Amino acid sequence: MSNSTEELAILPATSEPYQIVYEDDVLLVVNKPAQLLTVPGRHPQNQDCLIRRVQREFPFAEVVHRLDYDTSGLLILPLTKRVLSDISKQFQARSVQKHYIAVVEGKLAKAKGVIELPLAADEQKRPLYKVCPQQGKPSETRYRLLSYNAAANHSRVQLEPVTGRSHQLRVHMLALGHPMLGDSLYAPGAIAAKSPRLMLHAEYIRFVHPLSRAVIEFSAPAPF
């Protein structure tokens, strides 16, 4: 998920610290809090971000993938150029496995499924994205219903992005008729107001360690 939306507005950085989930000589896995950019934004007031905070302690840390400002969860941060290259290739090959937890409005009709809807930038509503069969890039999300809260009429779902388009999970769930709670960009006002934060968290990641070649996996429970 990219940071394109965050380059256009002032986004106050949370004071909540990041957490180190794993550390060795060549890479980190960290848990990013919500309401913190992964990298600096274009706006001069958007310089406080995850990577700059991490680099105070780990000067050689670099970004290989991103989470949106509003999204919390796990990120791999390489500490060497070799590891950066290796992890980048794993992402390009779609061999990195990851899933997210989200809370969405309504009850899903199916317990699990696959959403395949092409996505493109919405030129009329930048910085939003939209489903666009003509110009959109192929995008695929697997979903699984975890639970349904009838009293509140919302569902807890596990989302696995097979592709990694900007705002893919948010737009795909919206297209399915289930906007995410706290989503100030895509959810109707009443649904956006149901949570002080976007209810989307990168809970799990699995990849091959660039040096040992062992498969390693990490999880960080959703804070909601």
Rank of each mutant, 00 (worst) to 15 (best):
K125I: 00
L37A: 08
Q19H: 15
G164L: 05
Y143T: 03
L84I: 00
P210G: 11
G106H: 08
A13T: 15
E62Y: 00
G136F: 06
K125G: 03
Y204N: 05
R144F: 07
Q168D: 11
P179T: 03
P44C: 00
S147T: 07
Q134R: 15
D24N: 01
E217D: 15
R213L: 14
Y22A: 04
V64N: 00
P196E: 02
M180Q: 08
V39I: 12
S195I: 10
D86V: 04
F207E: 11
E7S: 10
K89E: 15
A93S: 10
A214R: 15
A192N: 01
Q124C: 06
S95K: 06
L74T: 11
Y129F: 14
K125F: 12
H65F: 02
I76K: 01
Q90V: 06
T71M: 04
A214C: 11
D122N: 07
R82M: 09
A34C: 08
M199Y: 12
A61N: 02
Q90C: 02
G182M: 06
F60H: 15
Q124M: 11
N3E: 15
A192Q: 03
E116K: 14
A13E: 12
V21H: 06
K112Y: 13
G189R: 06
Q97S: 12
R165T: 01
F207S: 13
E62K: 14
H154C: 14
Q45A: 13
R206M: 07
A111W: 13
Q134K: 15
D122T: 01
L200W: 13
V26L: 04
L176D: 10
S155L: 03
Q97G: 10
V54C: 09
D68K: 04
F207Y: 08
Q55W: 11
H43R: 15
R165H: 00
L176Y: 14
V29K: 06
M199S: 13
N153I: 00
S147R: 03
R82V: 06
A187Q: 04
L27R: 01
Y18A: 01
P188G: 03
K32E: 04
L176G: 11
I205T: 08
L8C: 06
P78F: 06
I10F: 15
R82A: 05
C132A: 11
L146K: 02
C132L: 08
L77C: 03
K130G: 09
L211S: 07
I20G: 12
D183Q: 03
S212H: 11
H209V: 10
Y22N: 10
E203D: 13
M1C: 11
P33I: 09
Q35L: 13
I115P: 09
E62N: 12
V39K: 04
E6I: 05
V21N: 07
A222C: 09
V26G: 02
P78T: 01
H154I: 00
L146G: 05
A193W: 10
L128S: 05
C49L: 12
M173I: 02
V114G: 06
P33R: 11
L117V: 13
N149K: 06
H172N: 01
L67V: 01
A9K: 13
A192D: 04
S2C: 12
R52D: 15
V131I: 15
Y186K: 05
L79A: 05
Q19Y: 06
Q168R: 06
L27K: 05
S4V: 14
D24P: 02
P33E: 05
A111M: 14
G177C: 08
R197D: 03
I20W: 11
L28N: 07
T141M: 12
D68E: 02
